[in-house]
Simulated assay, not measured.
Amino acid sequence: MSAYLDHAATTPARPEVVAAMAEELGRIGNPSSLHTAGRAARRVVEEAREQVAAALGARPGEVVITGGGTEADNLAVKGLYWARRAADPRRRRVLVSAVEHHGVLDPAEWLAHEQGAEVVHLPVDATGRLDVAALRAELEADPASVALVSVMWANNEVGTLQPVAEVVAAAAEHGVPVHSDAVQAVGAVPVDFDASGVAALSTTAHKIGGPVGVGALVVRRGTALVPVLHGGGQEGGVRSGSVAAASARALGLAAELAAADQPAHAARLADLRERLAAAVLAAVPDAVVHGSPDPALRLPGLLHVTVPGCQGDSLLYLLDARGVECSTGSACTAGVPQPSHVLRAMGLEDATARGALRFSLGRTSTAADVDAVAAALGPVVERARSAGLAVQR
Protein backbone atom coordinates (compact mmCIF):
# COMPACT_ATOMS: atom_id res chain seq x y z
CA MET A 1 0.00 0.00 0.00
CA SER A 2 1.27 3.48 -0.88
CA ALA A 3 2.14 6.07 1.72
CA TYR A 4 -0.01 9.04 0.72
CA LEU A 5 1.59 12.37 1.69
CA ASP A 6 -0.24 14.76 -0.63
CA HIS A 7 -3.19 15.81 1.54
CA ALA A 8 -2.68 19.47 0.60
CA ALA A 9 -3.73 18.50 -2.94
CA THR A 10 -6.74 16.52 -1.76
CA THR A 11 -7.51 14.41 1.29
CA PRO A 12 -9.71 11.31 1.53
CA ALA A 13 -13.40 11.90 2.10
CA ARG A 14 -14.51 10.95 5.59
CA PRO A 15 -16.69 7.80 5.66
CA GLU A 16 -19.57 9.61 7.38
CA VAL A 17 -19.46 12.33 4.71
CA VAL A 18 -19.53 9.74 1.93
CA ALA A 19 -22.51 8.03 3.59
CA ALA A 20 -24.42 11.29 3.96
CA MET A 21 -23.76 12.31 0.36
CA ALA A 22 -24.72 8.86 -0.96
CA GLU A 23 -27.97 8.99 1.00
CA GLU A 24 -28.79 12.40 -0.44
CA LEU A 25 -27.94 11.29 -3.98
CA GLY A 26 -30.74 8.74 -3.67
CA ARG A 27 -33.31 11.49 -3.26
CA ILE A 28 -34.78 13.81 -5.85
CA GLY A 29 -35.61 17.47 -5.68
CA ASN A 30 -34.27 20.80 -6.92
CA PRO A 31 -33.79 23.21 -3.99
CA SER A 32 -35.41 25.96 -6.07
CA SER A 33 -38.62 23.96 -6.66
CA LEU A 34 -41.67 24.72 -4.52
CA HIS A 35 -43.16 21.23 -4.27
CA THR A 36 -42.49 18.80 -1.44
CA ALA A 37 -39.32 17.27 -2.90
CA GLY A 38 -37.95 20.72 -3.70
CA ARG A 39 -38.63 22.02 -0.21
CA ALA A 40 -36.93 18.96 1.29
CA ALA A 41 -33.86 19.61 -0.84
CA ARG A 42 -33.91 23.26 0.20
CA ARG A 43 -33.89 22.23 3.86
CA VAL A 44 -30.80 20.12 3.23
CA VAL A 45 -29.02 23.06 1.58
CA GLU A 46 -29.94 25.51 4.32
CA GLU A 47 -28.90 23.11 7.08
CA ALA A 48 -25.56 22.68 5.30
CA ARG A 49 -25.20 26.45 5.05
CA GLU A 50 -25.76 26.69 8.81
CA GLN A 51 -23.09 24.06 9.43
CA VAL A 52 -20.53 25.88 7.27
CA ALA A 53 -21.35 29.17 8.95
CA ALA A 54 -20.98 27.71 12.43
CA ALA A 55 -17.67 26.06 11.50
CA LEU A 56 -16.22 29.29 10.13
CA GLY A 57 -17.63 31.83 12.56
CA ALA A 58 -20.05 33.38 10.08
CA ARG A 59 -23.78 33.97 9.66
CA PRO A 60 -25.64 31.48 7.44
CA GLY A 61 -26.72 34.31 5.12
CA GLU A 62 -23.05 35.10 4.46
CA VAL A 63 -22.29 31.64 3.03
CA VAL A 64 -22.43 31.33 -0.77
CA ILE A 65 -22.12 27.73 -1.95
CA THR A 66 -19.83 27.38 -4.97
CA GLY A 67 -18.33 24.65 -7.13
CA GLY A 68 -15.06 24.75 -5.16
CA GLY A 69 -12.21 26.96 -4.04
CA THR A 70 -11.24 28.22 -7.48
CA GLU A 71 -14.75 29.42 -8.22
CA ALA A 72 -14.91 31.05 -4.80
CA ASP A 73 -11.62 32.85 -5.47
CA ASN A 74 -12.80 34.03 -8.89
CA LEU A 75 -16.09 35.28 -7.47
CA ALA A 76 -14.27 37.18 -4.75
CA VAL A 77 -11.56 38.78 -6.88
CA LYS A 78 -13.69 39.62 -9.91
CA GLY A 79 -16.86 40.32 -7.97
CA LEU A 80 -15.21 42.73 -5.55
CA TYR A 81 -13.27 44.44 -8.34
CA TRP A 82 -16.33 45.00 -10.51
CA ALA A 83 -18.43 46.23 -7.60
CA ARG A 84 -15.78 48.64 -6.35
CA ARG A 85 -14.93 49.87 -9.85
CA ALA A 86 -18.62 50.49 -10.59
CA ALA A 87 -18.89 52.62 -7.46
CA ASP A 88 -15.71 54.56 -8.27
CA PRO A 89 -13.87 54.18 -11.61
CA ARG A 90 -10.61 55.20 -9.94
CA ARG A 91 -10.51 51.87 -8.09
CA ARG A 92 -8.50 49.79 -10.50
CA ARG A 93 -5.58 48.49 -8.41
CA VAL A 94 -5.68 44.92 -7.10
CA LEU A 95 -3.12 44.16 -4.38
CA VAL A 96 -2.23 40.47 -4.01
CA SER A 97 0.59 38.68 -2.27
CA ALA A 98 3.21 37.28 -4.62
CA VAL A 99 2.65 33.78 -3.22
CA GLU A 100 -1.10 33.47 -3.84
CA HIS A 101 -2.62 30.34 -5.33
CA HIS A 102 -3.32 30.60 -9.05
CA GLY A 103 -7.02 30.63 -8.17
CA VAL A 104 -6.37 34.22 -7.09
CA LEU A 105 -3.42 35.22 -9.29
CA ASP A 106 -4.98 34.18 -12.59
CA PRO A 107 -8.31 36.03 -12.22
CA ALA A 108 -6.35 39.08 -11.08
CA GLU A 109 -4.18 38.87 -14.19
CA TRP A 110 -7.29 38.37 -16.31
CA LEU A 111 -8.70 41.58 -14.88
CA ALA A 112 -5.47 43.32 -15.85
CA HIS A 113 -5.53 42.04 -19.43
CA GLU A 114 -9.26 42.34 -20.07
CA GLN A 115 -10.64 44.93 -17.66
CA GLY A 116 -7.90 47.52 -17.23
CA ALA A 117 -6.91 46.54 -13.70
CA GLU A 118 -3.44 47.17 -12.33
CA VAL A 119 -2.20 44.16 -10.34
CA VAL A 120 0.41 44.76 -7.65
CA HIS A 121 2.27 41.70 -6.35
CA LEU A 122 3.18 42.33 -2.74
CA PRO A 123 6.57 40.96 -1.63
CA VAL A 124 7.15 38.29 1.00
CA ASP A 125 10.14 37.44 3.17
CA ALA A 126 12.32 34.34 2.93
CA THR A 127 9.71 32.29 4.82
CA GLY A 128 6.91 33.28 2.44
CA ARG A 129 5.25 35.71 4.88
CA LEU A 130 3.81 38.95 3.54
CA ASP A 131 5.73 42.19 3.98
CA VAL A 132 3.01 44.25 5.70
CA ALA A 133 5.08 47.43 5.40
CA ALA A 134 5.02 47.04 1.62
CA LEU A 135 1.26 46.62 1.74
CA ARG A 136 0.89 49.78 3.82
CA ALA A 137 3.07 51.70 1.37
CA GLU A 138 0.91 50.63 -1.58
CA LEU A 139 -2.27 51.55 0.27
CA GLU A 140 -0.97 54.94 1.37
CA ALA A 141 0.47 55.83 -2.04
CA ASP A 142 -3.00 56.19 -3.57
CA PRO A 143 -5.76 54.67 -1.41
CA ALA A 144 -8.57 55.87 -3.67
CA SER A 145 -7.26 53.68 -6.50
CA VAL A 146 -7.28 50.36 -4.58
CA ALA A 147 -10.18 48.06 -5.39
CA LEU A 148 -9.27 45.17 -3.10
CA VAL A 149 -6.54 43.26 -1.31
CA SER A 150 -6.25 39.45 -1.50
CA VAL A 151 -3.92 37.63 0.88
CA MET A 152 -4.24 33.91 1.56
CA TRP A 153 -4.67 32.59 5.11
CA ALA A 154 -1.99 29.91 4.68
CA ASN A 155 0.32 29.18 1.79
CA ASN A 156 -0.39 25.94 -0.04
CA GLU A 157 3.24 25.17 -0.94
CA VAL A 158 5.39 26.04 2.09
CA GLY A 159 2.64 26.25 4.73
CA THR A 160 3.43 29.73 6.06
CA LEU A 161 0.51 31.49 7.76
CA GLN A 162 -0.08 35.04 6.63
CA PRO A 163 -0.63 38.05 8.95
CA VAL A 164 -4.31 38.35 8.04
CA ALA A 165 -5.16 40.51 11.06
CA GLU A 166 -2.44 43.02 10.16
CA VAL A 167 -3.55 43.04 6.53
CA VAL A 168 -7.15 43.75 7.49
CA ALA A 169 -6.10 46.49 9.91
CA ALA A 170 -3.98 48.21 7.25
CA ALA A 171 -6.69 47.97 4.60
CA ALA A 172 -9.45 49.11 6.97
CA GLU A 173 -7.70 52.44 7.47
CA HIS A 174 -8.52 53.19 3.85
CA GLY A 175 -11.87 51.39 3.56
CA VAL A 176 -10.46 48.66 1.31
CA PRO A 177 -12.01 45.15 1.45
CA VAL A 178 -9.79 42.12 1.99
CA HIS A 179 -10.32 38.65 0.55
CA SER A 180 -8.51 35.63 1.96
CA ASP A 181 -8.15 32.23 0.34
CA ALA A 182 -8.44 29.94 3.38
CA VAL A 183 -8.58 26.66 1.46
CA GLN A 184 -5.52 25.21 3.20
CA ALA A 185 -6.25 26.75 6.59
CA VAL A 186 -9.76 25.50 7.37
CA GLY A 187 -9.58 22.45 9.60
CA ALA A 188 -5.83 22.86 10.11
CA VAL A 189 -5.71 26.10 12.13
CA PRO A 190 -8.43 28.19 13.81
CA VAL A 191 -10.41 30.21 11.25
CA ASP A 192 -12.97 32.73 12.49
CA PHE A 193 -14.49 34.74 9.67
CA ASP A 194 -16.31 37.28 11.81
CA ALA A 195 -13.34 37.98 14.08
CA SER A 196 -10.90 38.20 11.15
CA GLY A 197 -12.55 41.25 9.61
CA VAL A 198 -12.05 40.01 6.05
CA ALA A 199 -14.77 40.89 3.55
CA ALA A 200 -14.67 37.51 1.82
CA LEU A 201 -13.15 34.09 2.53
CA SER A 202 -12.80 31.05 0.27
CA THR A 203 -12.93 27.40 1.29
CA THR A 204 -13.49 24.02 -0.34
CA ALA A 205 -14.72 20.61 0.74
CA HIS A 206 -12.07 18.26 -0.62
CA LYS A 207 -9.32 19.61 1.65
CA ILE A 208 -11.34 18.84 4.79
CA GLY A 209 -12.75 15.37 4.17
CA GLY A 210 -15.47 16.23 1.69
CA PRO A 211 -15.87 15.65 -2.07
CA VAL A 212 -14.27 17.51 -4.96
CA GLY A 213 -16.60 19.96 -6.68
CA VAL A 214 -18.16 21.96 -3.87
CA GLY A 215 -16.93 24.86 -1.75
CA ALA A 216 -18.03 28.19 -0.41
CA LEU A 217 -17.32 31.89 -0.46
CA VAL A 218 -18.18 33.57 2.81
CA VAL A 219 -19.13 37.20 2.10
CA ARG A 220 -19.50 39.70 4.91
CA ARG A 221 -22.97 41.17 5.16
CA GLY A 222 -23.18 44.47 3.30
CA THR A 223 -20.27 43.71 0.96
CA ALA A 224 -21.08 44.54 -2.66
CA LEU A 225 -20.24 41.70 -5.04
CA VAL A 226 -20.97 41.43 -8.77
CA PRO A 227 -21.80 37.85 -9.89
CA VAL A 228 -19.52 35.93 -12.22
CA LEU A 229 -22.25 33.42 -13.15
CA HIS A 230 -25.63 34.68 -14.32
CA GLY A 231 -28.81 32.67 -14.62
CA GLY A 232 -31.49 31.73 -12.15
CA GLY A 233 -30.29 33.98 -9.37
CA GLN A 234 -29.69 31.22 -6.84
CA GLU A 235 -27.51 31.84 -3.77
CA GLY A 236 -28.94 35.27 -3.14
CA GLY A 237 -28.32 36.38 -6.70
CA VAL A 238 -24.56 36.15 -6.20
CA ARG A 239 -24.00 32.72 -7.73
CA SER A 240 -26.53 31.33 -10.21
CA GLY A 241 -26.92 27.61 -10.81
CA SER A 242 -28.93 24.85 -9.18
CA VAL A 243 -27.34 23.93 -5.86
CA ALA A 244 -26.53 20.23 -5.58
CA ALA A 245 -28.16 19.23 -2.30
CA ALA A 246 -25.97 16.14 -1.94
CA SER A 247 -22.77 18.14 -2.38
CA ALA A 248 -24.01 20.83 -0.03
CA ARG A 249 -24.80 18.25 2.63
CA ALA A 250 -21.32 16.77 2.26
CA LEU A 251 -19.71 20.21 2.53
CA GLY A 252 -21.69 21.08 5.63
CA LEU A 253 -20.89 17.85 7.45
CA ALA A 254 -17.20 17.97 6.45
CA ALA A 255 -16.92 21.56 7.73
CA GLU A 256 -18.66 20.70 11.00
CA LEU A 257 -16.43 17.70 11.65
CA ALA A 258 -13.26 19.56 10.64
CA ALA A 259 -14.00 22.42 13.03
CA ALA A 260 -14.77 20.06 15.90
CA ASP A 261 -11.60 18.02 15.35
CA GLN A 262 -9.25 20.92 14.55
CA PRO A 263 -7.30 21.25 17.83
CA ALA A 264 -6.60 17.54 18.26
CA HIS A 265 -6.04 17.11 14.51
CA ALA A 266 -3.50 19.92 14.41
CA ALA A 267 -1.60 18.59 17.42
CA ARG A 268 -1.34 15.10 15.91
CA LEU A 269 -0.18 16.44 12.54
CA ALA A 270 2.39 18.71 14.15
CA ASP A 271 3.95 15.73 15.92
CA LEU A 272 4.02 13.71 12.69
CA ARG A 273 5.51 16.65 10.80
CA GLU A 274 8.39 16.98 13.25
CA ARG A 275 9.07 13.28 12.97
CA LEU A 276 8.96 13.57 9.18
CA ALA A 277 11.30 16.58 9.13
CA ALA A 278 13.82 14.70 11.25
CA ALA A 279 13.57 11.66 8.97
CA VAL A 280 14.07 13.72 5.82
CA LEU A 281 17.13 15.53 7.20
CA ALA A 282 18.59 12.27 8.48
CA ALA A 283 18.21 10.69 5.03
CA VAL A 284 19.38 13.78 3.12
CA PRO A 285 21.45 16.02 5.42
CA ASP A 286 21.84 18.78 2.81
CA ALA A 287 18.08 19.10 2.22
CA VAL A 288 16.70 22.52 3.14
CA VAL A 289 13.37 22.99 4.92
CA HIS A 290 11.37 26.04 3.80
CA GLY A 291 8.58 28.06 5.34
CA SER A 292 8.36 29.58 8.78
CA PRO A 293 10.53 27.91 11.44
CA ASP A 294 7.97 29.01 14.05
CA PRO A 295 5.32 26.29 14.55
CA ALA A 296 2.78 28.99 15.40
CA LEU A 297 3.27 30.56 11.97
CA ARG A 298 2.90 27.51 9.75
CA LEU A 299 0.43 24.77 8.91
CA PRO A 300 0.89 21.83 11.26
CA GLY A 301 0.93 19.09 8.63
CA LEU A 302 3.01 20.47 5.75
CA LEU A 303 6.74 20.00 5.17
CA HIS A 304 8.42 21.65 2.17
CA VAL A 305 12.03 20.89 1.30
CA THR A 306 14.46 21.42 -1.54
CA VAL A 307 17.08 18.82 -2.36
CA PRO A 308 20.27 20.27 -3.86
CA GLY A 309 21.36 18.82 -7.16
CA CYS A 310 18.05 17.14 -7.94
CA GLN A 311 14.94 17.82 -9.99
CA GLY A 312 11.78 17.67 -7.90
CA ASP A 313 9.84 15.90 -10.66
CA SER A 314 12.47 13.17 -10.89
CA LEU A 315 12.39 12.67 -7.13
CA LEU A 316 8.60 12.55 -7.19
CA TYR A 317 8.51 9.78 -9.80
CA LEU A 318 11.23 7.77 -8.08
CA LEU A 319 9.45 8.08 -4.74
CA ASP A 320 6.18 7.09 -6.36
CA ALA A 321 7.83 3.95 -7.72
CA ARG A 322 8.73 3.10 -4.11
CA GLY A 323 5.20 3.66 -2.86
CA VAL A 324 5.55 7.21 -1.53
CA GLU A 325 3.12 9.74 -2.99
CA CYS A 326 3.93 13.44 -2.51
CA SER A 327 4.22 16.49 -4.77
CA THR A 328 6.60 19.18 -5.93
CA GLY A 329 4.19 21.97 -5.03
CA SER A 330 0.66 22.97 -5.97
CA ALA A 331 -1.32 20.22 -7.68
CA CYS A 332 -2.77 22.90 -9.96
CA THR A 333 0.65 23.45 -11.56
CA ALA A 334 2.00 19.90 -11.45
CA GLY A 335 3.92 19.03 -14.61
CA VAL A 336 4.48 22.68 -15.54
CA PRO A 337 8.21 22.94 -16.43
CA GLN A 338 9.02 26.09 -14.49
CA PRO A 339 10.05 26.87 -10.93
CA SER A 340 7.37 27.67 -8.40
CA HIS A 341 6.34 31.32 -8.27
CA VAL A 342 6.09 30.93 -4.50
CA LEU A 343 9.72 29.88 -4.15
CA ARG A 344 10.86 32.58 -6.54
CA ALA A 345 9.01 35.19 -4.49
CA MET A 346 10.83 33.86 -1.40
CA GLY A 347 14.15 34.56 -3.11
CA LEU A 348 15.19 31.06 -4.17
CA GLU A 349 17.19 30.69 -7.35
CA ASP A 350 15.58 28.69 -10.14
CA ALA A 351 18.00 25.77 -9.84
CA THR A 352 17.22 25.45 -6.14
CA ALA A 353 13.47 25.87 -6.62
CA ARG A 354 13.39 23.04 -9.15
CA GLY A 355 14.49 20.60 -6.45
CA ALA A 356 11.36 21.06 -4.35
CA LEU A 357 9.28 18.38 -2.64
CA ARG A 358 6.12 18.95 -0.61
CA PHE A 359 5.02 16.37 1.92
CA SER A 360 1.58 17.07 3.38
CA LEU A 361 -0.15 15.07 6.10
CA GLY A 362 -3.81 14.51 6.82
CA ARG A 363 -6.38 12.67 8.89
CA THR A 364 -5.35 9.25 7.57
CA SER A 365 -1.59 9.84 7.94
CA THR A 366 0.33 7.56 10.30
CA ALA A 367 3.83 7.01 11.64
CA ALA A 368 4.13 4.24 9.05
CA ASP A 369 3.87 6.85 6.30
CA VAL A 370 6.74 8.76 7.85
CA ASP A 371 8.77 5.56 8.10
CA ALA A 372 8.12 4.89 4.41
CA VAL A 373 9.60 8.27 3.49
CA ALA A 374 12.56 7.67 5.77
CA ALA A 375 13.28 4.35 4.05
CA ALA A 376 12.81 5.57 0.49
CA LEU A 377 14.21 9.09 0.33
CA GLY A 378 17.93 8.41 0.80
CA PRO A 379 18.19 5.76 -1.95
CA VAL A 380 15.97 7.86 -4.25
CA VAL A 381 18.18 10.94 -3.91
CA GLU A 382 21.31 8.84 -4.42
CA ARG A 383 19.84 7.28 -7.56
CA ALA A 384 18.70 10.65 -8.92
CA ARG A 385 22.15 12.11 -8.48
CA SER A 386 24.10 9.11 -9.76
CA ALA A 387 21.82 8.58 -12.77
CA GLY A 388 22.54 12.02 -14.16
CA LEU A 389 19.22 13.55 -13.12
CA ALA A 390 21.01 16.28 -11.23
CA VAL A 391 20.33 19.90 -12.02
CA GLN A 392 23.01 21.55 -14.11
CA ARG A 393 24.33 24.52 -12.17
Rank of each mutant, 00 (worst) to 15 (best):
A367F: 07
S340T: 05
A133S: 13
D350A: 15
H304L: 04
L318V: 01
H179N: 11
G252C: 06
P12L: 10
A133N: 03
S292D: 09
A264T: 03
A200Y: 07
G388L: 13
R273E: 11
L302K: 00
D369K: 08
L161S: 03
D6F: 05
S327D: 01
P227T: 09
E173D: 05
V104S: 12
V164L: 11
V168F: 09
L281H: 12
T306W: 01
L130C: 01
A144Q: 15
C326K: 02
Q392P: 06
G215Q: 09
V238W: 07
T203W: 07
G159I: 14
W82S: 02
A278E: 09
P107F: 05
H101N: 12
H265I: 01
Q234Y: 13
G79F: 14
R249M: 00
A199L: 01
W82V: 04
R354L: 15
V52Q: 00
L5S: 07
G312R: 01
R385H: 05
D271M: 03
S150T: 12
P379Y: 15
L135K: 10
A147S: 14
A331M: 11
A86G: 00
T306H: 05
P190I: 02
P12K: 10
Q51L: 13
A266E: 04
E109F: 13
S292A: 10
A374E: 09
Q392L: 15
E50Y: 01
L253N: 06
T204N: 02
G362M: 06
D286Q: 13
V191D: 00
A353N: 02
A345L: 08
D6W: 00
G197T: 04
V186Q: 02
H206I: 12
L316K: 01
V64H: 04
A13G: 02
G68Q: 03
G291D: 06
